[in-house]
């Protein structure tokens, strides 16, 4: 068992895997533990970048880049954008009532998750239901599975995103046809305030 571990570290993939795993776990723990918004945000984004490294090790280049574009480029950027409304240079005060209970429950659920995913891999019963086609590119393979086996979930997800988009536009767009900078009444208000002074 221990020799296997040493041998796996010696290969490039093995070494890269351990480096990426340690860094990812370290960065995610900073995200959870840190009281500073900026540290939490930066480490979360960096860990998202490193996760794409796992896809590259597995030879799933396409998914790796999708991880980069979607999680790092879009989702994390939106988080960060929301974080701009807070004072990022100050530490936040957390309201924690029962630290040990949170730690226990969090640790237990993490352990259960690891066991759930590790059990089939350990007994080597895991098999690809839709294995890669030889000589076909990554993007094409993903497309084939997406448009045959998973067509309905894919389309449902698309409809859900469309609904969310329309809802977002309606929520945000109440005065969308009026330009804030061209609004003359705003200038009038400023002038009135000046006159009063």
């Amino acid at each position: 068992m221990f020799e296997n571990f040493i041998a796996s570290i010696m290969t490039i993939e093995g070494a890269a895997f351990y480096v990426f795993s340690i860094l990812t776990i370290g960065l995610f723990s900073i995200t959870v533990m840190s009281k500073n918004v900026l540290y939490a945000m930066t480490s979360l984004a960096a860990a998202m970048v490193l996760i794409s490294g796992f896809f590259f090790i597995l030879g799933a280049d396409f998914l790796g880049v999708v991880q980069l574009v979607v999680y790092v480029g879009a989702i994390m950027a939106l988080y960060s954008f929301a974080m701009m409304f807070f004072d990022a240079t100050k530490d936040i005060k957390e309201k924690t009532t029962n630290n040990s209970l949170v730690f226990l429950l969090g640790g237990l659920s993490a352990l259960v998750l690891v066991l759930m995913f590790a059990a089939p891999i350990y007994s080597e019963n895991i098999q690809a239901l839709y294995p890669m086609h030889e000589g076909v590119g990554n993007a094409q393979d993903v497309g084939m599975v997406l448009f045959t086996k998973y067509l309905i979930p894919f389309e449902v997800a698309a409809v859900m995103l469309l609904v969310a988009m329309i809802a977002g536009i309606i929520l945000a767009g109440k005065k969308m046809d009026e330009s804030l900078t061209e609004d003359m009444s705003a200038d009038d208000e400023i002038l009135i305030i000046k006159d009063e002074k």
């Binding site: 280049d61 880049v65 980069l68 480029g73 993007a139």
Partner: peptide, 16 residues
Amino acid sequence: NIGVLFVLGMMAAGLY
């Protein structure tokens, strides 16, 4: 194999 996407993704990460 996915050079175009990689370059666009990396430039997107430059936002940080």
